[in-house]
């Protein structure tokens, strides 16, 4: 029986949720016995090379590239998990949702107090760059998501228990320590 294949990505996330995944510490050796990793920022596989069973998404959608990667994940993964608040509801980057995107760009590149060298008031507009969306969207507003693991970041124990439950098919127990957010 082949091992389940896992893929992860960080869309508009700060990587903290991936750090939380790595916080499973030595259990990562157990994990490598249980699963096989495909596309992920912690390996060098940059494109899907086979169908994936579990896709873990960190971060919401801030720009067009995030959306395309997310849609790609939905196409290639049987199950998608939104990991962390950014993927679940937009998270911290979604604080820019009440503010026109023009103001955010202006503050960062032109008007901010630490901007000194941009005297020509250039804004990044290279064609290679992804295009910013009008708002930050949580993942389930773009594609269908199957599971949600809340937290900012979620505890490593929760991620471990959830992954093991998904892989083995056992029910997931949720003791208080796992779901208290502090």
């Amino acid at each position: 029986m082949s091992k389940p294949v896992i893929a992860t990505t960080s869309l508009a996330g700060c990587f903290g949720c991936h750090m939380s995944i790595l916080d499973i510490d030595e259990r990562i050796l157990q994990l490598f016995d249980l699963v096989e990793f495909n596309k992920s920022p912690i390996d060098d596989i940059k494109k899907f090379t086979k169908p994936v069973d579990i896709g873990i998404i960190e971060g919401g959608c801030c720009n067009s590239e995030n959306v395309e990667v997310l849609k790609d994940f939905r196409k290639n993964c049987k199950i998608l998990i939104s990991l962390g608040e950014c993927a679940i509801m937009g998270g911290l980057p979604a604080l820019r949702n009440g503010i026109p995107v023009e103001e955010c760009l202006h503050e960062a590149y032109i008007g901010g107090p630490t901007v000194q060298l941009n005297t020509k008031h250039i804004l990044p507009n290279d064609d290679e760059l992804p295009m910013l969306l009008d708002k930050v969207y949580p993942c389930h507003e773009i594609v269908k998501i199957d599971y949600y693991l809340p937290g900012c970041p979620p505890r490593a124990d929760l991620i471990w228990d959830a992954l093991v439950a998904l892989i083995t098919g056992d029910p997931l127990k949720l003791p208080y320590e796992l779901i208290k957010f502090d």
Partner: peptide, 16 residues
């Protein structure tokens, strides 16, 4: 060779 920073979140503005 170019390095493109593809991320923009707008912290400078939304913390205000």
């Amino acid at each position: 060779t170019r390095l493109h920073i593809v991320e923009f979140r707008g912290f400078e503005r939304f913390v205000q």
